[in-house]
Design a protein around this nucleic acid. Structure first.
Length: 904
RNA sequence: GUCGCUGUGGCGAAAUGGCAGACGCAUUGGACUUAAAAUCCAAGGACCCGUGAUAGGGUCGUGUGGGUUCGACUCCCACCAGCGACACCA
């Protein structure tokens, strides 16, 4: 036992922690402690492949942070769970013909085993999975809260639907009309929308799940078809989701990503009257456009409506109707990808109609073009080709007039001439020209003036738009939360269009047993195949059919951080008192891939729950940190093709050669992939080097937020450090577990004290800043220093063990035990750096002449500037360099350096 | 195309206005050993001058070019490269 053997001590301490419930977290923070700390990991999706090395990176970081703060006396909530609904489990189920619940449970068991193997200090009693019936019962409950909430724009918050004012004329039309009026304002509502239908996956997808016209998962083609779907009105919260980013301690990068996704823009809506060519008005028809540049209204030389625009057909002239018809039809078949991809040549057709520019009163042609989106703004634009690059391209292609109305503030005469002549598009801000009353105004002032004039004449108004769209919330899959919604049936068994919520007391709505949940390529959900006993419900004398869509995977992860607070609470989704005590999450660590979707969705749900009085804070995640991706080395041949790692041979000089062709290969860094055979399995690393070595290496590789390549030699390096730490304290030659002979019951020397206390100070600082790589470097220096000492004070060894505790907990517990302690060190007080012990008598001060270090002079600490200069001048080399030179000035940073500036 | 991040020894990195390269890997030398492994100790940016060899000294050096400063890896401007996100949002 005298040698450091992680295979022995790691399982031993893991079962000690488990048996003693060392990391059990109390229901409420200890009132006598130093406050609460809620540290959360983004919970994993339990895939069949098990953990990869990316998981333990964030998990180790939070674990170190938690173990540290426990030792500092905080009550720490640090839970773990599983995001287990979703497509991969269902795909796997279909492939292997096992029920998804069965494979999901097996995967969860495997993940739990692997996570426990790494010694994380989770309170496992709080473990949950989004697929637990007891969990998704409350996911359904929250959905019903969304269903029961409308957004009151005056109060700027969500309120119960019962408090919504109903117009008299609606009330007059009877209860059915009132019900459907209410339904239109709910935060969870149904809508016939063009959706992203993916036949291969057999489900619709949210806009965010479609990448370049293909499904994010599986890369299958996606079509746009109209379908009745559940939507969540996240757009109502766009402004607050944007504004409240200011409250958060997140990186500016992530905040910007979210802000860009919300995409707020300000401008104006302008109404253009429509006429036919000869100037006769076409009834009272007008088209409303949205623009961020109302100041360029005088430069609008044509108008474009989206192919989906409701007025397209009404305004199209008889001559143009055939081409317009065809164009719109073609556009409807195109996916978003087809509309944006390729050479990006814009296309469009003239409708034959004209619109009157409200400023110039001149008619401008109205075109249909698919570069204008139907679902943003008003679905129509005024085109100002002189000052918008897209309009400019379109105008060039179809030979439409280009009229400059803004002059840049700076530019060479040549550039200005090119803009004037229409050879170049100027999209920036400048000074208004050719716009009568606007002449000479800055872009900002001109915008304000135009809006003011539009509002006066009633032809327009200031307006705000968001890129954010409502969240498409239903999926046609089996493995998700069923919607707690019932559709009322007529006598003939068909729905009559009325819906109602499943009473909250009837929750949960469990998934039915299905023999066959394969997708069939049609948009009817698999739950439609459930037994009549599940599908049909009688309530209050009426017959209903259950909603058969299921919720998307995001649903469960929108609120899991709340359930962790009181996972067993049976009468509410979270215990009120405990929620108030633990929220918000103080530190949330996870991958940057969730920067937009998960974090935005969860913030939205949280705000609704906050408005409805169920949670105390406006935001769920106070501090967010994104761990960097872990990459692996890969090899490239002369053509740039990647070569699988098992085909590569490295010689002693580290040159990589192709095993078969002998070609010299270039080493690069790439994502781990099965195809390249460069995936690192954490379980194998644990078997070979130990969990503590894995943890330590993941932290030592570099800064937490950086992307960094994996190196097995690096793992060996930190393992070597753990061995050295072990031998520093333990007698590795003895058969018995006993302390190294050098460990003595003595006081540290002054020099040893400096090492001890500067290490404590540095490690403490580094942990609080999440700079774990440098913290480990400081402990290595400590071990290097004391390895050379033949008398090692026992107190110093205890300090090292405590510092090591958060990083390599198994090793530290074993050493702590060897040093004679009976209890775990999990709650032992963290060492304190003592200021006086850090003091040194003298320091080496670099002496510069003209900014170059020419000498180092030892000086007493706390020396004044005069004495510093005197001692520096006394140095032979310095005086030599200063002789016969004219001194310009002397710069002194006390205790740091001195610089003589001389004329050369 | 737009935005963001990154660029420092053979490699992972440290230093965020004050001694560039802490710490680790790999490498080299030494001690221990019959030998090897393990362990322990030590060396190391490049080039030049100097010496018998040491010691010592100089010039250059943090992607490139400019700037600010007594002093720049660090701040500012422009550019290049790699990675990532978004991508007709008017």
């Amino acid at each position: 036992m005298p040698r450091y053997n992680p295979a022995d001590i790691e399982p031993k301490w893991q079962s000690y922690w488990e048996q003693n419930k060392t990391f059990r977290c109390p229901e409420l923070p200890d009132p006598n402690g130093k406050g609460k700390l809620y540290v959360l990991d983004m919970f994993p999706y339990p895939s069949g492949a098990g953990l990869h090395v990316g998981h333990p990176e964030g998990y180790t970081a939070t674990d170190i942070y938690c173990r540290y703060w426990r030792m500092q006396g905080k009550t720490v909530l640090h839970p773990m769970g599983y995001d287990a609904f979703g497509l991969p489990a269902e795909e796997y189920a279909i492939r292997t013909n096992t029920p998804p619940r069965q494979s999901t449970e097996a995967n969860i068991a495997n993940f739990t085993r692997q996570l426990k193997m790494l010694g994380f200090s989770y309170d496992w009693d709080r473990c949950l999975a989004t697929t637990d019936v007891d969990y998704f019962r409350w996911t359904q409950w929250i959905f019903l809260i969304l269903f029961d909430t409308w957004y009151d724009p005056k109060a700027r918050k969500g309120r119960p639907i019962s408090e919504m004012p109903i117009p008299e004329d609606v009330i007059a039309k009877g209860p059915e009309q009132v019900a459907s009026y209410k339904d239109r304002f709910r935060l969870a509502y149904q809508d016939d929308a063009l959706v992203n239908w993916c036949p291969a996956l057999g489900t619709v997808l949210a806009n965010e799940e479609v990448i370049d016209g293909k499904s994010e998962r599986g890369d299958h083609p996606v079509q746009r078809i109209p379908l009745r779907q559940w939507m969540l009105r996240i757009t109502a919260y766009a402004d607050r989701l944007l504004a409240d980013l200011d409250l958060l301690d997140w990186s500016t990068g992530i905040k910007k990503l979210q802000a860009d996704w919300i995409g707020k823009s300000t401008g104006a809506e302008v109404d253009f009257k429509v006429s036919c060519k000869n100037g006769t008005a076409l009834g009272e028809e007008s088209i409303r456009v949205y623009t961020t540049r109302p100041d360029t209204l005088y430069g609008a030389t044509y108008m474009v409506v989206a192919p989906e625009h409701p007025l397209v057909h009404r305004i199209t002239s008889a001559e143009q109707s055939k081409v317009v018809e065809e164009y719109c039809k073609a556009a409807s078949f195109k996916s978003d990808r087809d509309r944006t991809e390729g050479d990006k040549q814009k296309s469009g057709v003239f409708t034959g109609a004209y619109a009157i520019n409200p400023m110039t009163q001149k008619p401008i042609p109205v075109w249909v073009a698919d570069y204008v989106l139907g679902n943003y703004g008003t679905g129509a634009i005024m085109a100002v080709p002189a000052h918008d690059i897209r309009d400019y391209e379109f105008a060039l292609k179809y030979d439409l007039p280009i009229v400059q109305v803004v002059e840049p503030i700076q530019g060479t005469p040549q550039e200005l001439e090119e803009i004037r002549s229409g050879k170049v598009c100027f999209a920036g801000e400048g000074i208004a020209i050719a716009g009568r009353e606007l002449n000479g105004l800055s872009t900002k002032d001109a915008k304000a003036k135009v809006i003011e004039s539009l509002e006066r004449t009633g032809l327009g108004r200031g307006a705000v738009n968001y890129k954010l769209r409502d969240w498409l919330f239903s999926r046609q899959r089996f493995w998700g939360e069923p919607f707690p919604i019932l559709h009322e049936l007529r006598e003939d068994g068909q729905p009559n269009g009325q819906i109602r919520a499943v009473p909250m007391s009837h929750l949960p709505v469990d998934l039915p047993h299905l023999e066959d949940y394969k997708p069939h390529g049609r948009p009817e959900p698999p739950l439609g195949k459930a037994d009549a006993s599940w599908l049909y419900v009688e309530l209050d004398g009426k017959r209903y059919r259950r909603e058969t869509n299921t919720m998307p995977q995001w649903a469960g992860s929108c609120w899991y951080y709340l359930r962790f607070i009181s996972p067993k609470c049976s009468d509410a989704f979270v215990d009120r008192q405990q929620e108030a005590a633990w929220m918000p999450v103080d530190l949330y660590i996870g991958g940057a891939e969730h920067a937009v979707l998960h974090l935005l969705y969860a913030r939205f749900w949280h705000k609704v729950l906050h408005d409805r009085g169920y949670v105390t804070h406006p935001e769920p995640f106070q501090k967010l940190v994104n761990q960097g991706m872990i990459l692996s080395y890969a090899f490239k041949d002369h053509r740039g093709a990647l070569v699988s790692v098992d085909l590569v041979e490295e010689d002693q000089d580290g040159n990589a050669k192709h095993r078969q062709t002998g070609e010299t290969l270039q080493r690069i860094v790439a994502k781990m992939s099965k195809a390249l055979k460069n995936v690192v399995d954490p379980e194998i690393v644990v078997k070979e080097y130990g969990a503590d070595a894995l943890r330590l290496y993941e932290m030592f590789m570099g800064p937490l937020e950086a992307t960094k390549p994996w190196s097995m030699q690096g793992v060996n390096g930190v393992r070597n450090f753990l061995d050295r730490a072990w031998r520093l304290i333990v007698d590795s030659k003895s058969e018995q577990m006993q302390l190294n002979d050098s460990v003595k019951e003595v006081e540290p020397t002054a020099e040893q004290d400096r090492v001890i206390h500067s290490t404590i100070a540095a490690v403490t600082q580094d942990i609080e800043n999440l700079s774990f790589n440098t913290a480990i470097a400081r402990m290595m220096e400590f071990v290097n220093h004391f390895t050379k000492e033949t008398i090692r004070p026992r107190s110093a060894m205890e300090t090292l063990t405590l510092l090591l505790g958060p990083f390599a907990p198994h090793l530290a517990e074993e050493l702590w035990h060897a040093l004679g302690h009976k209890e775990s060190l999990a709650y032992a007080p963290w060492p304190k750096a003592i200021e006086e012990k850090l003091r040194v008598a003298s320091v080496e001060i670099p002496v510069q002449v003209n900014g170059k270090v020419r000498a180092k002079v030892s000086m007493p600490v706390g020396i004044d500037d005069q004495a510093t200069e005197r001692l520096a001048r006394e140095n032979d080399r310095v005086s030599e360099l200063l002789v016969a030179k004219e001194l310009v000035k002397v710069v002194i940073v006390p205790g740091k350096m001195i610089n003589f500036v001389v004329k050369p």
